[in-house]
């Protein structure tokens, strides 16, 4: 029996599967928001869980676990975006079409932002993290996060126009 960290492999896989089930959708959405493509996002999510399985970190709370996974997701997305090996893929909206015109508009607006702004927007509006928590996840200063959030909002406002921006 191949053991690591004093636990059987089967046991670890079972624990990992539970963690995967708990977090895969959330991580996929964050990766989609940052990467802007399904294929890249799925690759990132796979890599995130692979790191989880390799490192086997101890989490104090489920929130801690989620924050760690989102941090790794953000880092891997950043790495992949700077890599020349990044896949050329179809846009996000082609893989996951919007259900309404409003969704289409807001998604187009968000996807028009730089990746670092998309990460902030997603973590702030969808995940509901504070700027302080986002700063920890993205490993930046909180003031930087606030500044990026302000600039992202301004860019969304410019993209959507004054009327649609009211709905943000």
């Amino acid at each position: 029996m191949n053991e690591q960290s004093g636990r059987p492999v089967d046991c670890r896989i079972s624990e990992t599967e539970e963690t995967v089930k708990r977090n895969e959708n959330r991580l996929l959405r964050a990766a989609l928001a940052i990467m802007g493509s399904k294929a890249d996002a799925e690759d990132v999510v796979q890599d995130v869980f692979l790191k989880l399985f390799e490192k086997q970190p101890r989490f104090e709370t489920p929130e801690h676990e989620t924050a760690w996974l989102l941090t790794v997701t953000a880092n891997l997305c950043k790495t992949r975006l700077s890599s020349p090996w990044r896949k050329k893929t179809v846009p996000l909206l082609a893989d996951y079409p919007a259900q309404t015109g409003a969704q289409q508009n807001i998604l187009e607006a968000v996807l028009s932002l730089p990746a670092k702004y998309r990460a902030i927007i997603h973590l702030f509006y969808y995940e509901g993290y504070s700027t302080k928590e986002i700063a920890e996840i993205t490993q930046q200063k909180e003031s930087t996060v606030r500044q990026q959030l302000t600039r992202a909002r301004r860019a969304l406002k410019a993209f959507l126009g004054e009327e649609n921006h009211e709905r943000l």
Partner: peptide, 9 residues
């Protein structure tokens, strides 16, 4: 709308 879209994924 953004959150609704993400929830659908």
């Amino acid at each position: 709308d953004y959150n609704d879209y993400m929830d659908g994924i």
